[in-house]
């Protein structure tokens, strides 16, 4: 177990340089030890310890682990200390950027180093897992039911839209429509642009309804009742 640390700006810089070297074909290990010392990181809280050797099978498991770990911590403090998310990304780099036949496939930097921009902050694989799980618990499964290194289309489509991702009733309604309880995975075809009532259509329809109805005050049931016929297939899908 390790005390939770907070990567400093200079630590983030070295981490970013490491990502760049790996992208360019480098094969070195992540600089965990180097960046876990001053001046690259500072103590955040010794009251919070994390297990560096954990292998998470999914992002929901990762989110649930962090939710338990941070349960007594102030949300504002956690979110205003960007460096803790980046230090965790470094600590669990093998989870979020695994070696596959000796090669790591490094995706966009925002997945590993937290962006301060609202247009892509939600892509951080560690923060995103904790944030969505801590807000929605079970109903985060559409976003987080994937390996720790994946940023799926559900997250990209829904978490990027502030009106949607902050609406608890709506997130529950989305889960009702598109989560397949029997198979423990999203319903097949829900992200297929050619299918009626797919997720992108839902986003468009919600955008229209939001102009008229006070959707934030509505329950999932009330929102489902507002949806037009094209969504009936998903509502009736006998999996719940």
């Amino acid at each position: 177990m390790k005390d939770l640390l907070c990567l400093t700006d200079s630590g983030r810089k070295i981490f970013a340089e490491y990502l760049q070297r790996i992208r360019s074909g480098g094969s070195e290990s992540p600089p965990r030890d180097e960046l876990s010392r001053e001046p690259y990181s500072t103590a955040f809280s010794s009251a919070i310890q994390v297990d560096e050797s954990t292998n998470f099978s999914s992002r929901i498991e990762l989110g649930e682990y962090l939710h338990r770990t941070f349960q007594k911590s102030d949300r504002n403090t956690l979110l205003s200390n960007y460096g803790i998310w980046d230090w965790l990304a470094l600590l669990w780099f093998d989870n979020i950027c695994p070696l596959d036949q000796g090669i790591r496939k490094v995706r966009e930097t925002a997945r590993y180093i937290l962006s301060r921009d609202r247009s892509d902050y939600y892509r951080h694989l560690i923060l995103g897992s904790w944030d969505l799980y801590s807000l929605y618990g079970l109903y985060s499964r559409l976003f987080l039911n994937c390996p720790p290194y994946i940023h799926n289309d559900w997250t990209e489509q829904l978490a990027s839209r502030q009106d949607i991702i902050t609406n608890k009733g709506l997130i529950e309604a989305v889960d009702w429509l598109y989560w397949d309880d029997k198979r423990g995975r999203p319903k097949i075809g829900a992200t297929d642009r050619k299918r009626q009532g797919n997720i992108r259509r839902l986003i468009m329809v919600i955008g229209q309804l939001d102009l008229t109805y006070d959707l934030h005050a509505m329950s999932a049931d009330e929102i489902l009742l507002l949806l037009p016929e094209e969504f009936d297939l998903w509502k009736m899908y006998p999996t719940k």
């Binding site: 949300r75 504002n76 956690l78 979110l79 205003s80 008229t212 109805y213 006070d214 005050a217 509505m218 009330e222 507002l226």
Partner: peptide, 21 residues
């Protein structure tokens, strides 16, 4: 969680029916 950068929205809602307009 993110008090420093909050934005605000003011809504006037007619709740006389069964759905808030």
């Amino acid at each position: 969680g993110r008090i420093e950068n909050l934005h605000f929205r003011v809504k006037i809602v007619d709740e006389s029916g069964n759905k808030g307009l």
